[in-house]
Write a protein that binds this DNA or RNA. Structure first.
Lengths: 142, 142
DNA sequence: TAGCTAGTTGCGAATGGTTCTCATTTGCAT
DNA sequence: ATGCAAATGAGAACCATTCGCAACTAGCTA
């Protein structure tokens, strides 16, 4: 995957600029994150990263994810009754629909909702810093 | 407070009907919950409940909250980076705005957003079961 | 009203995801 | 190449929440 490769190099650049060293372990984790089409949790990322570099420890996965989150290249989501799940922050902002039967996550975006949120905050005398919108759903069977 | 008293008796009735015994400890917790104007967490509820009945243990607070949640009379909220907070489920459905500086919680309701959420789920082939909408805000200073 | 019994309690131990500690290793600027 | 601050692996620590168990009790029954 040429795309993934480029993306990983791009991410590595962001880290170096932020004064964050690109170690063998972090490179492996970055690659896994860039390739991921889903929203894996730390232990799943650990499992995948070990296939690239067997020395990656779970501690490092957590530490790297925190560093990446701080650099703004990764987003952490704490969905209901579940461990934290992660995704790269390259796509434009979106919210999540979670299939309560399978745990699958679908991304969606609603400009109308975004705007309404800002309006509500403003009406209450607040400035919206960030939000969390999650739809817990069941697949329609018909 | 006559209102609180009635509400507590009402809640006790719901429990008894659900086959859940109303113990001294649960009565204390129910009273605290009915009186609460905020969104306390388990340890805060424990602190308050002990003033009514010093024998209430933290385990019982947790167990009671779970029972109450199952009976549908209490709602649990897991806001970002914080312990679970609780409120009685007597008010009509609403979402929450959290002041990221003070932790204060303000309730709000937007029928438009509610409707948009259902539409989005439907478009994606899902049936909306429940949702979580939280606005993390900073007080506007001007 | 006493008795019975399954539900409940307090206590302390267990859980489990995540973070921290520390001795050792290593990226990378010079 | 070298030096040193940053990063690592392993395992301990954290901490909110849940569990296990022996003692207690709500509330039905006679």
């Amino acid at each position: 995957m040429r795309q993934t490769k480029n993306r990983v190099q791009e991410l590595e650049g962001i880290l170096r600029e932020g004064g964050v060293r690109v170690t063998r372990q972090r490179a492996a984790i970055l690659k896994i994150l860039a390739e991921a089409e889903d929203h894996p949790d730390a232990s799943e990322l650990h499992r995948r990263a070990k296939e690239i570099d067997a020395t990656v420890s779970l501690s490092t996965v957590y530490r790297t994810l925190s560093a990446l989150e701080q650099q703004g290249v990764v987003q952490r989501h704490a969905f209901e009754n579940a461990t934290a799940r992660f995704e790269t922050a390259d796509a434009p902002h979106h919210d999540h629909l979670i299939d309560i039967e399978t745990g699958a996550v679908i991304e969606f975006r609603s400009d109308k909702i975004e705007q309404l949120q800002a309006e509500i905050a403003a009406e209450l005398g607040y400035e919206l810093v960030r939000h969390r919108l999650e739809l817990y759903c069941r697949k329609r069977k018909d």
